[in-house]
Structure formats: C-alpha cells, structure tokens
Design a protein around this nucleic acid. Structure first.
Lengths: 381, 381
DNA sequence: CTGTTAGCGCGTTCAG
DNA sequence: CTGAACGCGCTAACAG
C-alpha cells in the first residue's frame, strides 16, 4: 500500500502548510531531496567527503550551494556526541596578558568549524572547577585552560573529558593531557640574573598580588639571588590579599563583585615608594609585570631618580610599550599570542586524527635587555 | 494494575541496559518521572515558574536537586525558537578599549542563563556582516554590536533579528534598535576645547589610523579649532592605510593575516616626530587614543621637550595608566566597562518582558584635566 | 494550571 | 558505498 501519510514534497501548498515549527531555513532533508539522495548521505558528504562517491558529492555540493544550506549546530550537537566548541578558561579579562592569548585562540579557530567559548575564572580555583563542569556538559571539541593549579576534582574531570585538553601559560612535568607554555620560574630567574650581571646588588621584587602562578617568578628571583649570594627577603614587596586598590572609576564596579586590580601603574608607584622607604639602598627592582614597571619608571621620574644609573627596572611579559618607554624598559618576553594560537592548532591537529604529540612544549621566556637595566652602558636605544 | 513498565529506579541492571545513546546525564524525563509529573511541567517550572503551582514546583525543584539535573542547551535551542546566546561583535581583541567592554559584558551575564559568544570583526564591515549572518542563525537571545557603521545589509538583518539589538561605543539618532554609548564627536571637541582653554594654539591631531569611528573624534577636533578660529589642517597626522607598522614580535603574525597594530607607543613616537618636523611651532597634540599619547610623552622626554610647558598632551579613553604617568596625562574618559555591562542589562530586562526603554542613551565623555595639559598651572598631581 | 502529541534537524545503528 | 528507521532532550501547540 501507499504510505499512509500524504506526500509532502511536491506541492508547494503542502510546503507552506507543512512546517509547524522551525524557521524557513533549508535543512539537510531539503538538500537531500534536491540532490535525490538520503539525508544521511548529505551528512556524510559534509562531515567526511571520502565516504561518498565523487558524483554524489558533486551533486550534493551543488544542492548545498543552491539552497544556501547551513548545518544547524544545535541539532548536530544533540545528535552526536561532540560539539564544535572549544572552551577557553582564563583567569582575567582585564589583563592584556590573557587577551593576547585570546587573540591567538580566535585566529587559531579561523577557517575551521570550531567555535570559541570563554570562561573567566577570576583567579578563583573553585570558580574554575564550576566552569569546567559547565563546559564539559557541552561535550566540547577541546578545552584550553590557563596554568597548572587546577583543583584535584577539576583535574579529574578534565582527564575524563574525552577531548583534547591543553594547558597554557605555564609549564609542568605532569600535564593533564598536553601543556604548551613557559616556566615562570625560569623567567623570574633569568630576568633577575640579568640584573645581577649588570651590577645591581640590592634588587627588589614588586608584585601587586602574588598568585600561585606568579609565585614561580618570585621563586626564580629568590633562586637567582641565592645563587649570587644576595638573598634579601626584606626587598620583596607585594600587597596582602586584604588590600583593595582603588579603581580608576569606582562606578565601574559591578554590584557585589569588586574588581580587584592589582596590576596598574598606580600600584607600581605605591609599591615602589614603600620599597625605597623600607630600603633606601635599593638599586633595582624586578616587577612582577610590565604595568607595575611602568609605574615604577614614572615614580622614578617624579622623584628624580635616574634610570638605569640609580635604579634598574625590569618587568615581565614584554608588552609593546616596554620598548617605547624612555628609557626603554627591560622585560621577560612571553609568547602569549603564539601560545593561544598553538593551543588551538594542537587541538585541531588532534581532532583531525593526529596523535597527541609532545605532551610538554616549553616556549621559553626571552630576556629583553634594554636601557632601563643598562648599568654597564652597553646599549643605547 | 501495576505499571506495565518494570520499575526503573531500583534496579541498576535496568538502568545500564536502558539507554541506547546519550551520556549518563539525567534528562528532563528522569526529573519528571521522579517528581511524578509530565516532562513539559518540568520544562515550565524551569523556564517560567509562575506557570506551575507552588506544590508541584517544590517537588520538581527537589527532583532536580536530587538528580543533579542540568538542562541540555542544544536540545533546548533545537526545540525552541531562541537560544541563550548573546552575540557580541567587536572590532578588535588587541585594544583594551574593547576588552574592557567585554569584561562588562561577562559580568553582565553573570548569574543569568545567558552565554556570551564573541565575534571579532577586525574593523572589517564585510566580516561584520558575515559574522552577523552566522550569529543570527543561532537565533540569539540578543546581539551587541560595536559602533554604527554596519552595512545596509547587516542593518537589515539585525532589524529582523527578532531579538534585542544593542549598539554600543558610539551614538546615533537612528539606532537599529537601541544604542548605548557616547559621541566621539563630542569627545574630540571637548578635549580640544580644553586644550584651547589652557592656552594652546597650534594643536596637532595624531591618529594611527582614522577609522570611521575615530573620524568622529577628528571632526570634533576640527570643529573646536574652527570655533576658536584656529583651523590648521596641516597639523593632522595619521598613517595612510598603506602603512604597515612593525610588530613587537614579527613571529606573532598568523600566516596570511598580518596584525595591523596602529595603536602602540612606538607609533605615537613616530607620528609625533613627523608632526613636529612638519610644524616646529606645534604646542599641543590631541592623540586619538591613550597609548599614542603615552608614546608622545616618551618622545617628549627623549627630546627634552617639557610637558606641559612646551607641549600639551591629551589622549582618549582614559586608561588607568594615564593618571599615573609623570606628568599625569589628560584624556577623554569613556565608560567602556559600564557600556558592556549596561548593554547586557538592557537585553536581560527586555528578555524579562520589559519594554525597549530609551532607544538612545548617551553615557557621555568626561575630560580628565591633568598635568600634561596644565599650561595655566592650576593643577599639581 | 497540567498533560498529550508531535516534532526541532541531525547522526547513529544496522542493514543492504 | 548507500539507505531506513529511530532517537538525542526538549518545548510549541493544542487540548482539558
């Protein structure tokens, strides 16, 4: 017997009456009808063209073209076990350090079907754990997480995520899955060694807030001083967790969630004042990040302290303003954009079927030696 | 009689045999079964609790709690006509101007079911149009777009999007739907007027690249000069579109897509050198953005030009480093974080059923008068 | 206020 | 290499 259901495809009257929900967009069924094949064949032609004969593929491609068909991601995700989302967890949106990473991530997914989803952990491991849970529900195509300080539970979830998990912006012997980043310890050590080589002896350390991540830098600084026989704990200056810096515009604080901004030039100026008050013999400072270094430079200018003669200044990350300052500011250069880009590239490779590759990739930190630390008088930029 | 179906809850053997696909996560059906109601009732209790009686709601909430049920977003989006995505289109991820906006956006969706999706238009209106098309396919809950220079086609699509569309970071009499932002023209005019009031007469304009957006600032600058009888077209300095500034790290360029960075201190220094070479009588510069102003300050320091006596410097946006510079730098303060936050708040209000409200909200630009333009000697910070 | 029914658009399973 | 049938989890539409 003929189908009990009335024929649907031919009559345009039917066509208009036929849809009850959904918008007018063409579906895979429309493409299939036009190409004279089954929907599944269209699906295959789209996801893995090698599964379909050349002739059919051609016809299907033409039908897709003609109809302007675009797959519905929700339907695809619902029906399959994987989505096309790459989840990216970063601790802050206000630091350009991480927005540089994001630029790399976005450039990395460009031209692929992948979609980026960002989670802001606000330097809170519990919030990170919560976000991981939320992201993993969507069965992401891949995850990118910042640093190595995940909670044990977060780590466990990521290990069982069933997708590539790339840790970035730090380094470890024991990655969850794969880690691409650099050693904060090495960075802090190298910058401090540079200061020592230039002849500085009472080298202070300034940080707005020593997170676990930056504590690697602090440890590297301590190690370099210790190796040179110059340990000096009293030279370490950072705000206690209780300190609440003012915002440029207090109204910019969302209700109930203060924006803690520990990395501003103002904080740099204040910490530097505290540092020289505590030790007038201070002759250099290693700043935990560039923006603090900029503040220190301004404070030196305000107080008539000569840089680099009376005071050496070095930062960390090497943002573009460092080389343009007067005098130009030394810094430990990190490869943030590249880090984000490479993380996505690794994910794409693995989604493409490639094996995991090197589980640990250290991109290194390069000391940019500029005028602000040129006590030996070798440079002139 | 007892149910024909065997009891499901007690036997774990049944449990494992029962599912064919999908992961182990509880579904709305599980919640419904446990609460002894129909699935749709659970759906309603979750989406609009007022549709369900207090007693049932209680039971359902308990079942949700007990099972750890979390709705599947893909299924929800597929079945309904709206997703929970707020699409945000910004022209750049490398300028903190827009990452400040993003911070506000993310804080704004906090605690709501909304999800943020970011599109980077790279200052390309065609790319913006393409992204709008892509975003609208997902039937977003709302759209946030930067500026007012959408293509006619993009505008048409947004008008028919069927969701709140908020334009930000600019102002217009004729918003697509609703606009929350500020006038670049007013900002440019006000800052220039301030320079004139301070006694500067040969006021240059410096911009890395005059986009349509910043041309408002340029126009405001021109208007202020014209009103004071000081028009001076030769003082306008900006790079031509053909200019390609160097990157701090050339390797940071993704293949095939050069990163054009027109807003760096280095560019500011170069443009300022060109400006004083072209007109040695220059006594002040209005910089199209803060980071250029910082570069100008450094160049002045390098050349021994006194600020503010010999040269006034003003920027635009008022990033936090402006007040901490030495001398502190004047700027037109814009409310970027707030702008992102308010845009989301407007969307949430409307999703909650509120009417459109003011279609045009001007957040204003405030001139921060600091030492770098204090020729009259009134200030001392 | 609550339930029934019927899909949303796609991919998996299993059969050719 | 191709197809038919079914179901992913949820909600719109329409009853009661």
């Amino acid at each position: 017997m003929d189908s009990i259901r009335p024929e649907r495809k031919k009559s345009s009257a039917d066509l208009s009456a036929r849809r009850r929900r959904g918008d007018g967009r063409p579906t895979i069924a429309d493409v299939a009808a036009r190409a004279g094949v089954a929907a599944i064949t269209v699906s295959r032609a789209l996801s893995d063209p090698s599964l379909v004969s050349d002739t059919l593929r051609k016809t299907i491609e033409e039908a897709v073209q003609a109809l302007g068909y675009v797959p519905n991601l929700s339907a695809r995700t619902l029906a399959s076990t994987r989505s096309s989302v790459v989840g990216v967890l970063i601790p802050s949106l206000s630091q350009t350090v991480f927005t540089d990473v994001l630029r790399g991530v976005y450039d990395g997914v460009d031209g692929s079907p992948l979609t980026v989803q960002i989670g802001n952990t606000r330097y809170d491991e519990a919030e990170e754990e919560r976000l991981i849970k939320v992201f993993l529900r969507e069965k992401p195509a891949g995850m990118i997480v910042s640093g190595i300080d995940q909670t044990p539970e977060a780590r466990r979830m990521l290990e069982n995520a069933g997708c590539p998990v790339i840790q970035i912006m730090d380094i470890s012997d024991d990655p969850i899955d794969q880690i691409i980043g650099f050693s904060h310890y090495d960075g802090g050590r190298k910058v401090t060694e540079h200061l020592i080589e230039e002849g500085y002896r009472r080298i202070g350390f300034i940080a707005g807030w020593v997170s676990r991540r930056s504590s690697g830098r602090l440890d590297g600084y301590r190690a370099a001083l210790a190796a040179a026989g110059l340990p000096q704990p009293s030279l370490e200056h950072s705000f206690s967790p209780g300190y609440m810096p003012k915002l440029a515009d207090a109204s910019e604080t969302p209700a109930g969630r203060p924006v803690l901004e520990f990395a501003t030039p103002r904080v740099g100026r204040e910490l530097f004042r505290a540092a020289i008050a505590a030790d007038p013999g201070l002759d250099a400072v290693f700043c935990n990040n560039d923006i603090l270094a900029l503040g220190v430079l301004f404070e030196c200018q305000a107080q008539g302290i000569r840089v680099p003669e009376d005071m050496g200044i070095a930062g960390f990350n090497d943002h573009d303003y460092m080389e343009s300052a007067f005098p130009s500011l030394s810094s430990g250069r990190t490869h943030r954009y590249r880090n984000g880009l490479d993380a996505v590239v690794a994910i794409r490779r693995r989604l493409g079927g490639a094996p995991v590759g090197e589980p640990v990739i250290d991109m290194g930190v390069e000391v940019m030696k500029r005028r602000s630390t040129d006590r030996s008088g070798n440079r002139r930029d």
